[in-house]
Design a protein around this nucleic acid. Structure first.
Length: 583
RNA sequence: CGGGGCGUAGCGCAGCCUGGUAGCGCACUCGGUUCGGGACCGAGGAGUCGGAGGUUCAAAUCCUCUCGCCCCGACCA
């Protein structure tokens, strides 16, 4: 329990609630943070935290700090304003592109605002750590970060200036790095548990940084940007981009081999369209998409990806198969050049370039696909007989697919990435010459890991996950106050009783917001629901006449179900409830 | 960066098509009546109509340029 600050009276606070949400607030969290008087927008992806918003932010920070400290990590504070030298050293000055906020000082030297701090921390460590005796080390900071996002959105969910906790671990070897990673993973579990969030730890695509081991902490919310699949039976969960798919066993068929035939399908290019027109199931179609590779062996050429008509192509997997860092759907002109036909009629039969085929597409016994000829499709297409191609898992995992670990069905969720942990290896330390002397007398590069938590994003994520039509439902651990005391009417007895109760709560370490405004009860209740403090304690002449106060959790929708608690022991009872929900 | 949309009082909007010098609701101030789920009556205060230029006797309104913001997509903690 954190020491309580003096109780806050609504009449002295700055909690400018709004009846109507600003028109540009689309997400629940965005609208409610604005309406509840938590934040105000200053520019695209730039926000002010008003007193209530700052309190929530600090609560999240506090949990994060406590668990980081407990895990043995050491807090530092690195600059947000950085000389360009470090990013130039690793090449990110060029690679990072427009996302980097760049500036010049009066002498004309290049600077930028830190979007992340691998280089800076690596520089610190290479200067200060010489020996294996100094290892392992895990340094973290809670710092404002800047990214000139192409499209800030969702209020606090994707900002250009945001608060992040980032930690970097330094070890002698891979085994040590793995141990540091495991420690962080455990710390993150405690953090997300304590924050009261429902989340999944998912396997992630490690992206271009080339991390070997990585996991995302996804806060489940329907409005989440990330699609994830999780097993209904075992622990398996993955970002759809990273999810592997177990090909289902091919169905044995006694049907005779079909004959290849060309059919006229004027104007029918889209899968659903062709399927309806020809009267076949989408699962019998061979969806054929033309891609171009950004780099790698196929750079500049187009390749064909074939998946079953009812499946989607996973571009991350395709890029890996192609050997490129990224693939792009070909432009119409490229498609026409590659297929010799207009868009909508591509197919693997007779395709002039490299073909990648998902096993489940290959398993289609009698496929229907584009004929690489305008307004024509082929039916009775058989893999191996009519076309070939590299067999490789290409499809995007979807709900209902078998779990790659245990075979049970996968369910799909939307998630907000609240944390990301991964092992970096020697990527940065090698480039920047961050070495130490090992006990065998050899100089070796440090093995690094990095671990991020989007602190300000979690504030929004918590709301996305915990709100109703009336407002926010804060988990106790991050609520701006534990208890919202609402006094009804100007009755002297009510005021006296409230003052006493509020003082007693404060003495018990409970953070209290007291709505002492001269407002009608309805206004106060509406604001209380909006603000979302987990426990509401109402003092009114009626209940007080029988010596009671009313206690109602924010989660209880029916005001009649408020619990009557004798005023005499109210402070203890309420404090006990707060402590219980803090775990 | 591609597509779409919006900038008029603190917030939500109307007015623009068909130019005549700005209005509604909420919020705010004052008075009164109310008082357990966003009260009512009356009286007020508050707007460079995003900015610049142009057309015109006259521009929120028409034209050009520009800045900002939002949504979808691409991209990402």
């Amino acid at each position: 329990m954190v020491a309580a600050r003096p109780i806050m009276r609504a009449t002295r606070a700055l909690i400018p609630t709004l009846k109507e949400a600003p028109a540009d607030a689309v997400n629940a969290s965005h609208a409610l943070l604005l309406r509840g008087g938590y934040v105000r927008r200053v520019g695209a992806g730039i926000y002010e935290y008003l007193p209530l918003g700052l309190r929530v932010l600090r609560r999240v920070e506090r949990v994060v700090r406590e668990e980081m400290d407990r895990s043995g990590a050491l807090e530092v504070l690195l600059p947000a304003l950085l000389p360009a030298d470090y990013f130039k050293e690793t090449g990110r000055w060029d690679v990072y592109g427009d996302v980097l906020f760049r500036l010049r000082d009066r002498k004309g030297s290049d600077y930028h605002l830190g979007p992340t701090h691998e280089e800076i921390i690596t520089d610190l460590v290479r200067r200060e750590i010489r020996s294996y005796r100094d290892l392992p080390k895990n340094l973290y900071q809670v710092q404002v970060k800047f990214r000139d996002e192409p499209r800030p959105r969702g209020g606090l969910l994707r900002c250009r200036e945001f608060l992040m906790k980032d930690a970097y671990s330094f070890d002698r070897d891979e085994a040590g790095a793995q141990a540091s990673y495991d420690t962080m993973r455990a710390a993150y579990r405690r953090i997300f548990d304590r924050l009261g969030l429902t989340y999944r730890i998912v396997a992630a695509d490690s992206g271009t940084i080339g991390g070997s081991t990585s996991a995302e902490f996804q806060v489940l919310a329907d409005s989440g940007e990330d699609a994830i699949v999780a097993c209904s039976a075992c622990e398996y969960a993955a970002n759809v981009e990273a999810a592997t798919v177990q090909p289902s066993a091919p169905v044995a068929t006694d049907a005779p081999a079909p004959t290849l035939a060309k059919v006229h399908t004027p104007g029918h290019g889209a899968i659903a369209d062709v399927a309806t027109f020809l009267g076949v199931a989408a699962s019998q179609m061979l969806k054929s998409l033309v891609y171009s590779a950004k780099d790698g062996p196929s750079a500049g050429q187009t390749v064909l990806a074939v998946v079953r008509g009812d499946h989607e192509v996973n571009e991350v997997k395709l890029a890996r198969a192609v050997g490129a860092s990224e693939v792009f759907l070909a432009t119409d002109a490229e498609v026409e050049r590659a297929t010799g036909s207009k868009v909508g009629f591509a197919g693997p039969v007779g395709f002039g370039g490299t073909v990648f085929v998902d096993p489940e597409a290959a398993a289609v016994a009698s496929g229907v696909t584009g004929a690489n000829e305008a307004d024509h499709h082929l039916t009775g297409v058989v893999h191996g007989r009519d076309y070939t191609g590299t067999l490789v898992d290409l499809r995007l995992a979807a709900a209902g697919d078998p779990c790659p670990t245990c075979g049970a069905k996968l369910a799909s969720y939307r998630g907000i990435e609240g944390g990301h942990i991964f092992i970096l290896g020697t990527h940065y330390s090698a480039k920047m010459g961050a070495r130490f002397l090992d006990d065998d007398g050899q100089e070796k590069p440090l093995v690094m890991g990095c671990y991020g938590i989007g602190v300000s994003r979690l504030v929004a994520a918590a709301i996305e996950q915990n709100h109703d039509a009336d407002g926010i439902l804060w988990p106790m651990a991050i609520a701006p106050y534990h208890v919202h005391v609402v006094s009804i009417g100007a009755d002297a007895a009510v005021t006296t009783a409230t003052e006493t109760l509020v003082a007693e709560l404060e003495a018990r370490g409970i953070d209290v917001l007291w709505d002492d405004r001269e407002e009608r009860p309805g206004v106060k209740f509406k604001d209380a629901d909006l603000i979302g403090i987990p426990l509401r304690v109402t003092l009114g002449a009626k209940a007080l006449a029988s010596g009671n106060v009313e206690v109602k959790p924010r989660t209880e929708r029916d005001p009649k179900k408020a619990e009557l608690v004798p005023l005499a022991g109210a402070a203890d009872a309420i404090a006990a409830r707060v402590r219980a929900s803090l775990g």
